[in-house]
Design a protein around this nucleic acid. Structure first.
Lengths: 150, 150
DNA sequence: GGTTCAATAGGAATAATAACTAATAAATAA
DNA sequence: TTATTTATTAGTTATTATTCCTATTGAACC
């Protein structure tokens, strides 16, 4: 989701990340940890390209391909989520806490919100029998207040 | 969603489509009606490219750009929905009845399901105050039974 | 039927993503 | 610790998805 965590929480989540990589047989590289940390720390949902630009000051030689590859790898292991947007570019977030998305069809901004009632509700039969569920997200499209003013 | 409708229902929906175009100030072209009709009739969620290939027999000179442009236009007017998938290619459906999506992260197939309880439930306060809501879709990721067998 | 202007076909351009390969650096064993 | 192994990376090149451009067409309105 990318909300600000306290320093302690952050270190704890990063430790969990390292453990998850080890379990998945992924090497814990500087690039991977920095990409994941950035997604945890920031409050938005950057594209691979945006992420690459933001990481350049800290990792001057990181390539765009590494960002794409790393996001794909982390996504495969459920550590990062590719989210739906109103644009053609894919956007990502650290898949840490369950939450949902409000997407403005005018300004394309994605906003997070929580809805614990939905997180714990039972699925209808058909969905329940479909297979093994990994995640459940509500995606709401509309026009945000800022945009409806103008 | 793209479920099979009866011939009568189909014609009725197509009439509504024509009316919606007129109201929106969109010209009712053969390409537009055929694209929309196809999305209504079929049971899957094709990409622009797939749609183009399928329409070629009926409209031998339709260009891929027209398919992309038409889908974008219809999406802007809420007649077609761009749905989230596990791939980088965008996929579309006719936005007719509210429904939700099960996406298999292995085979990437998208399956529709209904959940009337969710369609009518109240949103949490934060989401409710965010702006004007146009659509609300649950996107569930997981592994379908077919894929978990192997 | 004639006029107007949005929409189209076709192709060319751009943007987004993935593939390739030599060099590098984690992980593991010695 | 150091050496060895092997996944991962940087840099570049290729591919795929999507959009832009322009002359031409055809739907809507007179």
């Amino acid at each position: 989701m990318a909300t600000p965590y306290s320093q302690e929480q952050l270190e704890q989540i990063m430790e969990q990340f390292v453990t998850a990589c080890r379990i998945a047989g992924l090497k814990v590289t500087h690039q991977r940890t920095e990409i994941y940390r950035h997604l945890l720390v920031i409050a938005d949902h950057p594209s691979a390209e945006t992420l690459h630009k933001r990481l350049l000051p800290a990792l001057p030689s990181i390539s765009l391909d590494t960002v794409y590859r790393t996001l794909a790898t982390l996504e495969q292991h459920g550590l990062v989520t590719r989210i739906q947007t109103a644009e053609s570019q894919a956007r990502f977030e650290a898949a840490y806490k369950p939450h949902h998305h409000l997407i403005c069809s005018r300004c394309k901004q994605v906003m997070d919100f929580h809805w614990p009632a939905i997180d714990s509700i039972d699925l209808p039969e058909l969905a329940d029998q479909w297979g093994q569920i990994e995640s459940k997200t509500i995606v709401i499209y509309g026009v945000c207040k800022n945009c409806s003013k103008s």
